[in-house]
């Protein structure tokens, strides 16, 4: 589904990703761990198409060269990024935002746009699964949401848009114990043979709930180690310093 070959990314003349390879197949869950500043969010941003990076190397998604696609086209084709720091947009009603978003994705997929009523029915269902109070949906997008509420809202959007590749950038940071479980359940219930996950995290506890097929360690812009689910526990004990 996603193939990255020798990816290098530079921003403001600073080389951040220094030759990275990654291969994600449908149905797989990949976790990326690594020290602060190692380039995890940069990788997520680059995959989503964020502007401002100078890129080298190859990225293909479902056989398409990602470099040819704009941010919204990637989103419409099934790349979803749950932001490490979700943005607040004052004045924009959450429901309205979600509906506009869903309909542009549906339109691109050649599906019928949802009218207000069908949308509300759908969103209420999804919100309930994540234990999100309906009241949040009529508030301004992320404005005044607590850190954890914002993260849950990201997962709600993921479930609504039904992406092929979901990139979760530290979605677990800031979640309380119950919320962590709810979010993990949300991810697990959406996992199937066709879609894949790239989960960026600092903590093993999320990976206790969502079992990854692979764990990669990103350090100074390179993947320095790849292992199976056990690698996480090992890292928890030894830290990143003794790796190489």
């Amino acid at each position: 589904m996603l193939k990255i070959k020798n990816l290098k990314a530079t921003i403001n003349e600073k080389l951040i990703l220094k030759g990275l390879d990654l291969d994600i197949k449908p149905g797989e869950v990949h976790a990326i761990m690594g020290p602060n500043g190692s380039g995890k969010s940069t990788l997520a941003n680059v995959l989503s198409g964020k502007n401002g990076y100078e890129l080298e190397g190859e990225i293909s998604f479902k056989g398409m060269d990602l470099n040819d696609l704009k941010i919204e086209e990637r989103a419409q084709k099934g790349i979803f990024l749950a932001f490490q720091y979700p943005l607040e947009i004052p004045g924009v009603n959450t429901n309205n935002f979600l509906r506009t978003s869903l309909n542009s994705v549906r339109k691109a997929r050649g599906e019928k746009e949802l009218d207000t009523l069908s949308f509300l029915k759908l969103i209420k269902e999804k919100a309930k699964e994540l234990n999100i109070d309906e009241k949040f949906l009529s508030r301004q997008l992320n404005v005044g949401f607590s850190g954890g509420e914002k993260k849950k809202n990201e997962i709600l959007q993921m479930k609504l848009l039904e992406p092929k590749l979901s990139i979760l950038d530290e979605t677990d940071s800031g979640l309380d114990i119950d919320a962590l479980r709810i979010v993990a359940d949300g991810v697990n219930s959406y996992k199937n043979k066709e879609n894949a996950f790239l989960i960026i995290t600092h903590y093993q506890r999320l990976l206790d709930y969502i079992k990854p097929d692979f764990i990669h360690v990103l350090s100074a812009g390179k993947i320095i180690k790849t292992g199976n689910a056990d690698l996480g526990e090992q890292l928890e004990k030894t830290g990143y310093a003794n790796l190489s």
């Binding site: 989103a75 419409q76 932001f83 947009i89 924009v92």
Partner: peptide, 19 residues
């Protein structure tokens, strides 16, 4: 953020401004 959710530039500006 809006683009990442599938909205193009115009839709995004329109949404934010109308909000």
């Amino acid at each position: 953020y809006c683009n990442q959710r599938g909205l193009d530039q115009e839709e995004a500006v329109s949404l934010i401004v109308n909000g």
